[in-house]
Simulated scan of single mutants.
Amino acid sequence: MTRYYSYKGCGTCRKAMKWLSVHSIVVDELPIREAPPTIDELRVARKSGYSLKALFNSSGGDYRELNMKDKLPTLSEDEALELLHSRGNLVKRPFVISDKGALVGFKEAEWEQFFGVIS
């Protein structure tokens, strides 16, 4: 089953969910703040080609509050993944995980390819 992590106040998450609905793609929706992705799921995103920096919601309040712009370059990968897992607001959203890999953020062309949708 494809897991879809989102935040109800996120416009991009709503847009992505609408896209999934239009294409009849069923996902298990999870609240990213209350149930953040696991460290293993975050590692899948790394293996799917996303940089550590790309996994972070750099426009969010938590990112600024924790001064992640300066802190992130000093963290090991394990430390960064643990931080993402412990504080769901830091994760770039929407965050999708399945047996095919991961998607971070919503770029329609990437989603079409990932889900095999022909436009």
Score class of each variant (00 low, 15 high):
residue 48 S to K: 07
residue 104 V to R: 04
residue 88 G to W: 06
residue 29 E to S: 15
residue 88 G to H: 03
residue 27 V to Y: 09
residue 5 Y to V: 10
residue 58 S to R: 13
residue 119 S to E: 14
residue 4 Y to C: 06
residue 26 V to H: 10
residue 63 Y to P: 00
residue 3 R to K: 15
residue 44 V to R: 12
residue 110 E to D: 15
residue 12 T to D: 11
residue 28 D to H: 14
residue 55 L to Y: 01
residue 96 V to L: 15
residue 99 D to V: 08
residue 82 E to K: 15
residue 71 K to R: 15
residue 115 F to V: 04
residue 31 P to T: 12
residue 15 K to N: 14
residue 29 E to T: 14
residue 48 S to Q: 07
residue 110 E to C: 07
residue 94 P to S: 06
residue 83 L to R: 09
residue 94 P to W: 05
residue 7 Y to C: 05
residue 36 P to G: 12
residue 89 N to I: 02
residue 75 L to E: 06
residue 27 V to P: 02
residue 3 R to A: 13
residue 92 K to S: 11
residue 66 L to I: 02
residue 70 D to L: 10
residue 87 R to A: 07
residue 14 R to N: 09
residue 3 R to C: 00
residue 95 F to P: 04
residue 95 F to W: 12
residue 80 A to N: 04
residue 72 L to C: 04
residue 103 L to K: 11
residue 43 R to I: 08
residue 32 I to N: 08
residue 5 Y to D: 10
residue 64 R to W: 00
residue 90 L to H: 11
residue 105 G to W: 12
residue 79 E to D: 14
residue 79 E to I: 03
residue 89 N to K: 15
residue 84 L to T: 02
residue 91 V to L: 06
residue 1 M to G: 14
residue 74 T to V: 03
residue 90 L to K: 02
residue 12 T to K: 05
residue 92 K to P: 13
residue 86 S to K: 15
residue 41 E to S: 12
residue 60 G to N: 08
residue 100 K to P: 00
residue 112 E to L: 11
residue 30 L to G: 03
residue 109 A to E: 15
residue 79 E to R: 08
residue 117 V to Q: 04
residue 116 G to N: 07
residue 80 A to E: 05
residue 113 Q to F: 00
residue 62 D to H: 00
residue 53 K to M: 01
residue 56 F to R: 01
residue 99 D to H: 12
residue 75 L to A: 07
residue 42 L to E: 11
residue 114 F to E: 01
residue 79 E to F: 05
residue 13 C to Y: 13
residue 73 P to M: 08
residue 39 I to H: 09
residue 14 R to Y: 06
residue 24 S to R: 15
residue 53 K to P: 02
residue 73 P to I: 11
residue 26 V to M: 08
residue 107 K to P: 01
residue 88 G to F: 03
residue 32 I to D: 08
residue 32 I to S: 05
residue 37 P to R: 11
residue 60 G to T: 05
residue 73 P to F: 09
residue 115 F to Y: 14
residue 105 G to Q: 07
residue 103 L to Y: 02
residue 76 S to W: 12
residue 81 L to F: 06
residue 48 S to N: 05
residue 94 P to N: 08
residue 81 L to A: 06
residue 113 Q to C: 03
residue 103 L to N: 04
residue 110 E to F: 07
residue 30 L to I: 15
residue 47 K to F: 02
residue 48 S to C: 05
residue 47 K to N: 04
